[in-house]
Design a protein around this nucleic acid. Structure first.
Lengths: 138, 138
DNA sequence: AGATATTATCACCATGTTATCATGAATACG
DNA sequence: CGTATTCATGATAACATGGTGATAATATCT
């Protein structure tokens, strides 16, 4: 469904959002262990999330990462689209570059509803919707 | 959504099913042109579809490929799952190997409905459902 | 049998994604 | 200031995917 990298990013953000204490930072090392992703690889992912304004980072002692946005204003789409073309509204099932009601592929009429539900899920589900639930991330 | 290879396979089967005349075969060359996929690469895909019992092939003059199953008994899932892990019922959004109601990830409750609709689409939509519609494959 | 048409198969290359390693740069703190 | 801590970043390796080319195997036709 998602690329490995996008999955890693989601896991990391969920984990960060859950352990959010006022002003406290979480180290990349600890996150890497918590979400079970190779340290250096996660480091780059976190960096991209930071550049995108989703996280804040700080270096040195007691440094680490923090959410930069309130969880209820952070749709999954915003995370996922950095690494993946998910949520581009209704991708064509057959991979046609342009596929629309006006110029459809044969699968278009059947695929449309499902495709739109997927797009809606990523657009409207926020991190807040997710972190309330129980369950482990790894 | 799907891997390139799975898309190619779908396009090829749709095209084959549409041009199906009694007993006639379609050459890999012609298919490759019709669905806009590199000849040699498509060749391998067609071979896999044949091994899976979805197509029949014959060599030599007037040879080529044919559907081996009636279109209304051929769900998209059967094609797609050869090349992709699509339709494995409800894959975990966060990539956990085991993710179920009993042992869920945090995203599980929200993701479930969409995930099931995707699985249902691939399981229940057949090639027959698709080839009736207008629209080009490339 | 021989020529031709067509799929089957093998070896290989190109590219992108995932992962690792080493090092640089910023911050905190005594 | 110096040192430890932590993120940032560039080089590179490992692997999977997509794509190419050459050759073998099989069928048809005369």
């Amino acid at each position: 469904m998602l690329s490995g990298t996008a999955e890693y990013a989601l896991r990391a953000v969920v984990c960060l959002a859950r352990s959010a204490r006022d002003g406290e930072h979480t180290r990349a090392n600890d996150l890497a262990e918590a979400v079970d992703v190779p340290r250096n690889y996660l480091s780059k992912i976190l960096h991209e999330l930071t550049r995108a304004g989703i996280l804040k980072s700080s270096r040195g002692k007691n440094g680490g990462f923090q959410l930069a946005v309130p969880p209820d204003e952070l749709p999954l789409l915003r995370i996922v689209q950095l690494f993946d073309r998910m949520g581009e509204q209704s991708r064509c099932l057959l991979g046609r570059p342009e596929c629309s009601d006006a110029d459809p592929c044969p699968a278009h009429p059947r695929w449309k509803a499902t495709s739109q539900q997927i797009a809606k899920f990523f657009r409207e589900t926020t991190i807040a919707d997710v972190i309330g639930n129980a369950g482990s991330v790894r």
